[in-house]
């Protein structure tokens, strides 16, 4: 079974080497904006991916581990497992809308700033820090 966290082992190693690197040898890419954009993307990505993957893993684990619970009928012939499955599909529509909204709010302005800075790197290289 792939635990959701398996997708991220490398990320836990990343902050320290990058910060050292930044102190000694400032990258000529726009620094502060890029850092903010990176963490905004990372936050959004972690929350959304882990929620989607996590809920499905729990669903499959329950289906296999507790078939009697998932087979119990909640309304007429509809079993709990079937209900949860369809619910996940319905929630997907909302999740996609939420993701679009959040990305528009948190990521897009920062990405625009990074793009604009990349166009005039020389002047802002000093101003950024």
């Amino acid at each position: 079974m792939t635990h959701p966290d398996d997708r991220y082992p490398p990320l836990s190693h990343t902050p320290q080497p990058y910060q050292e690197y930044q102190e000694y040898q400032p990258p000529h890419a726009p620094g502060a904006d890029l850092t903010a954009l990176r963490s905004a993307y990372r936050g959004l990505r972690r929350v959304s991916t882990l929620t989607a993957l996590g809920s499905f893993v729990v669903y499959v684990a329950l289906s296999c581990g507790a078939p009697d619970l998932m087979g119990s009928e909640i309304a007429g012939e509809l079993s709990l497992g079937m209900g949860l499955g369809i619910l996940q599909l319905l929630v997907t529509f909302g999740a996609v809308l939420w993701y679009g909204r959040s990305a528009q709010r948190s990521v897009d302005p920062l990405a625009r700033a990074v793009r604009e800075r990349a166009l005039r790197p020389v002047r802002d290289a000093g101003a950024a820090r």
Binding site: R7, Y41, R45, S48, T49, A52, L53, F56, Y59, V60, S63, G71, S79, G81, M82, G85, I86, Q88, L89, T92, A95, V96, Y99, A103
Partner: peptide
């Protein structure tokens, strides 16, 4: 029956995962 329902859900969610995790980068 049920096994197929789970497959339908995983098929749909796979694309969701692609959108959340990989699509933009």
């Amino acid at each position: 029956g049920y096994d197929g329902y789970v497959l339908a859900v995983s098929t749909a969610l796979s694309l969701v995962l692609l959108m959340f995790l990989l699509a933009e980068p």
